[in-house]
Nucleic acid binder design. Structure first.
Lengths: 226, 226
DNA sequence: GCAGGACCTTGACTTTAGTCATGGAATCCA
DNA sequence: TGGATTCCATGACTAAAGTCAAGGTCCTGC
């Protein structure tokens, strides 16, 4: 069992390059935790006791409004970690987290991680780099939400996917409803945005498969604003 | 002159509690820099060479769209620091920065700061806490932009100001146009939102002075969503 | 004291996106 | 296999916020 945890920890990008002794001490304090599709890991406002890493599966981090609309902040997959904020602030989780698939997670109590960071300046620098990249992503998300309309945001999202998948035939990584929530809109509006891009000949859509027909056109749209 | 820098560094919250020797080495590599109202310090996309701290004055960090609309991410005042992201990522600034008043800044080259962080785990932890609090703020901002309407966002902003100023008679800390940009809207829409809150008897406005008449009502509005 | 300018407000209008309701397609699994 | 569920698309409508244009207020500096 300790063995499993060690292997799992080894697969987490953030802990790459950590000396084996430290990995082992991390393994001692962390827990492997299975969770099912739809399971809520924590909710915005709860005291933030643990830091998480995804061993397998998929987790979304989001904020919900009282009326039920949700804004996805990020989706995390195998090798990624999340819920750093309360580790260093010691307060509450700023957002909620829910499994989008049956998943396996590592949960690490914040105290232990802080101890480790005190002893491992290189890990600390990695953590700062990770936090910084999150900040960069959020800056982009804020700018998109505030300065761009839905079809433009969709174009940007598709270009990101294309870069990640390395080809023009994309497979959507999330159900469309979740993509809508990530883009800060609702499924109906996303549906119409997809139709619009199709009609303009920029993409072709069949279910969760999307072909990018005109990458430059998409890029022009994504850059543009009203 | 070195003396000035030391005093200035001593006033920066992030560096509070740093051993004098380290402060001194920071002073050696950092530069004092005056800048005038409206001066642009850096623009989104430029290589991020420096980290900044505000000695006096006021700086806004924002993203602009091609068409001229702007979204303010944060406004920094004396004692605060900004532009951490490229320090740890070594890439470009994710947003632009502009002086909102004649200001004095400290600029610190990223290399020197990284060196210092390697030697000072406690400073590293402070930086992680700072980055985390930024993330928390951005999560809130994303949620507001996506899940709430302008009058609700305004209500939230006024409540924050009220908490900061500790009384019900507020002085707006920014021109209304800048507040609009912070709230993700335009001056006309902000004007109407202010009028709406006034008509509902929640606030009373005269120029840049705002009286909060009904804090609970404001809070109810800020929490609510459509 | 008044001309110019920055900033703010208001009104009329347009555009975008959200709401509500309906129906279709795919999937899961008794 | 067929019934239920979930997810998605579409249409008709409403509401929110942006655009454009005009005018007001306040401050500054001759």
């Amino acid at each position: 069992m300790e063995k499993d945890k060690l292997t799992a920890l080894g697969g987490i990008k953030l802990f790459e390059g950590l000396p084996p002794a430290q990995l082992k001490s991390l393994a001692e304090i962390s827990q492997l935790k299975g969770c099912k599709y739809g399971e809520i890991l924590f909710e915005a406002g709860q005291p933030g006791t643990h830091f998480f890493a995804v061993v397998s599966g998929k987790v979304r981090v989001y904020r919900a409004s009282l009326s039920g609309k949700e804004q996805i902040l990020s989706v995390f997959q195998a090798g990624e970690s999340f819920a750093e904020v309360p580790v260093f602030e010691g307060k509450t989780y700023p957002a909620s987290a829910q499994a989008l698939e049956d998943s396996v997670l590592l949960s690490i109590p914040r105290r232990g991680l802080v101890e480790l960071l005190r002893r491992e300046p290189e890990l600390a620098l990695s953590v700062m780099a990770l936090l910084s990249s999150r900040l960069r992503a959020f800056v982009g998300q804020i700018a998109q939400l505030s300065l761009k309309e839905v079809p433009e945001r969709l174009a940007g999202y598709l270009l990101l996917l294309r870069a990640a998948q390395g080809r023009d035939e994309l497979t959507l990584d999330l159900p469309k409803g979740q993509i809508a929530s990530y883009l800060g809109t609702i499924p109906e509006t996303l549906s119409r945005a997809i139709k619009k891009l199709s009609e303009q000949g920029l993409i072709e859509v069949a279910g969760s498969r999307v072909s990018v027909l005109d990458p430059e056109g998409l890029a022009a749209l994504a850059e543009s604003d009203r």
